[in-house]
Amino acid sequence: MKILVCISNVPDTTSKINFTEGDTKFDTNGVQFVINPNDEFGLTRAMWFKEKQGATVHVATVGGAQTEPTIRKALAIGADEAIRINAEPTDGFFVARQLAEVAKNGGYDLIIAGRESIDYNGGMVPGIIATLLDMNFVNTCVSLEIEGTDAKAVREIDGGNETIATSLPLVIGGQKGLVEESDLRIPNMRGIMMARKKALHVVEATDAPTMTADVKFEKPAAKGPVKLVDAGNIDELISLLHNEAKAI
């Protein structure tokens, strides 16, 4: 089985986010980037397929040279090869188009992408890849078993889970549940050293339209100070929750 894990290079959740150029550009100075958590759950599941079922695992990302540390981490965790598509990931369609092109040429049986990235939260990439490649698709996938070309996937639905029987080739939009957080792997020293020797292919982007443009970014309003309400003053508590917090 040949697996492609799509990796998005996203800011660490604890990074301080700032904008420049009239709030139209994200200021990346001093920001630590990581593997998108939903992609990391998928990568960890792919490593399980590698170790238990002998799968080959490639990872791919769309981005400039500054994204290489992120895919090197995937190699250090155990992926066999990496592909960097040398282009700025301008929007979801553009990214999906690039990844689909790589996937088409690579002959993959299983394509795993996170159900959404935690920076722009577009949530469209895996679905568009499946459409462009005309492959089966399971989104919000929380469990995946594969036997030969048969796949059993569980996806999260409103209020519960749905188990789906499908077959390879397959695209999934993965998330937590594919593996648990405690299963995520921290690259060890040997893995990091070996990652330096693994292939990291840089390919040029294929022509694709950018469908959208950022007009303006806004941060959420700053949180106000905490208001303490006396334990017996239920009326004031209700009034504050209703009129100020608008929670009830």
Partner: peptide, 21 residues
């Protein structure tokens, strides 16, 4: 020289994750 600054950066991040856990 089997190491480079990118791999050391990754190592530092890994040890931070290890220490967190």
């Amino acid at each position: 020289n089997d190491h480079d600054s990118d791999s050391i950066d990754l190592l530092i991040n890994s040890v931070k994750d290890f220490s967190d856990k």
